[in-house]
Design a protein around this nucleic acid. Structure first.
Lengths: 131, 131
DNA sequence: CTTGACTCCGTATCCCACTACCGGCTGTAC
DNA sequence: GTACAGCCGGTAGTGGGATACGGAGTCAAG
């Protein structure tokens, strides 16, 4: 596939793909004699993954770490496992925090219209739930 | 409290507080005759809230919307409720996506050391779980 | 009443993640 | 074989979110 086809399927611009390649998020693709990049379809999923994880608040640096979690010459299995588990913890914390905001919003949704709201009702709810 | 005390308690720089004030995330504080800002303690929680929600992948614009969800002269109760509920949906989707990544990492953690890992093992796991 | 930390505001600068533009080459459809 | 879309690499510019800097005024301890 050409870079343009990949871009269209993954829902990003051509420039973004070249940018991700420079940043080491995508491995360098093979080239035709002309210099044109030749991608195989797998890269589309990879870019979609990057896109969706980015929206969850991870930086490209963190995403690169997620992508390349693996045993290599410089990492033993137990080291890799430690890294993976720490990522899991990080995500668990994030889920926990999101749930807190979610529940505060749910409570706010219930109280809308029932009583007058202060300037920042969400903060009030969070404040009270801190018991 | 002075801006410096607030900054220290909230764990941000003084400049950041002024920046948030300019961006409308904090309401303008009272001033002494000298021009010094006088904050009350509540603002510390507000800044901490901003910090933590930012880390969950929300932009300052979205956070401002979260903070000021309330009924005013231009919004009826049902409109506010609709906005709140749509925020809840958004957060639910985020939690769902995080759980997907989390589960893929958990599976990866289990398989580390058992079988050789490909270049991007996380993507493999996600790929296979897409059934 | 001086010294040193703190604050004021304005402007400039930084980092990140793109996005745009350029002149030149390539591929293909007519 | 020429028009035209697509690709190349390089550099510059953008928007978001801070962070730094500078010169002047303020506060509190000694």
């Amino acid at each position: 596939m050409t870079i343009g086809q990949v871009a269209k399927l993954a829902g990003v611009g051509v420039e973004t793909i070249r940018f991700y390649e420079r940043e080491g998020l995508l491995t360098k693709p093979k080239r035709k004699e002309s210099g044109y990049r030749m991608f195989d379809a797998e890269v589309v999923n990879r870019i979609r993954f990057i896109k969706s994880v980015k929206e969850l608040g991870f930086s490209l640096k963190e995403i690169r770490e997620l992508l390349f979690l693996r045993v290599d010459s410089r990492a033993t299995a137990s080291e890799v496992k430690k890294r993976v588990d720490s990522k899991i913890d990080q995500i668990d914390r994030r889920i926990h925090d999101l749930k807190k905001v979610r529940n505060a919003l749910a409570q706010l949704s219930r109280s809308v219209g029932k009583r007058p709201l202060s300037e920042c009702p969400l903060l009030d709810v969070l404040e009270k739930s801190r018991t």
